[in-house]
């Protein structure tokens, strides 16, 4: 399937069991009938106040590990390199 907006390739992604078609190029999302409702239901559950969880202990790193974190979001265009590192060989 091609993206109706930019003609990019639409890929099928799984979000908590709901399958969505998302454009690889512009990251636009195509939802089938009922999927928006399913996602909204999930979001409402997510909005319930979560049970108080203990803070996760800091994960130890090896001696050669970085002192600094590099911030990013996977889905964003600028972080194409991080997507490559995590999602391909």
């Amino acid at each position: 399937m091609q993206c109706p907006k930019c003609r990019g390739t639409m890929r099928t992604y799984d979000r908590n069991g709901v399958h969505i078609e998302q454009c690889e190029m512009c990251r636009g999302i195509f939802l089938d009938y009922g999927e928006l409702e399913a996602l909204t239901r999930m979001q409402n559950q997510y909005m319930q106040p979560p049970p108080a969880a203990p803070a996760a202990p800091a994960a130890p790193a090896p001696g050669w590990g970085a002192q600094q974190q590099h911030h990013h979001h996977y889905g964003h265009h600028r972080q194409k390199s991080v997507f490559h590192m995590l999602f391909s060989t």
């Binding site: 890929r11 992604y13 799984d14 908590n16 969505i20 979001h73 996977y74 889905g75 997507f83 995590l86």
Partner: peptide, 9 residues
Amino acid sequence: GAAVSPDDP
């Protein structure tokens, strides 16, 4: 199969 969403691994 559906792929992992990059936003929510």
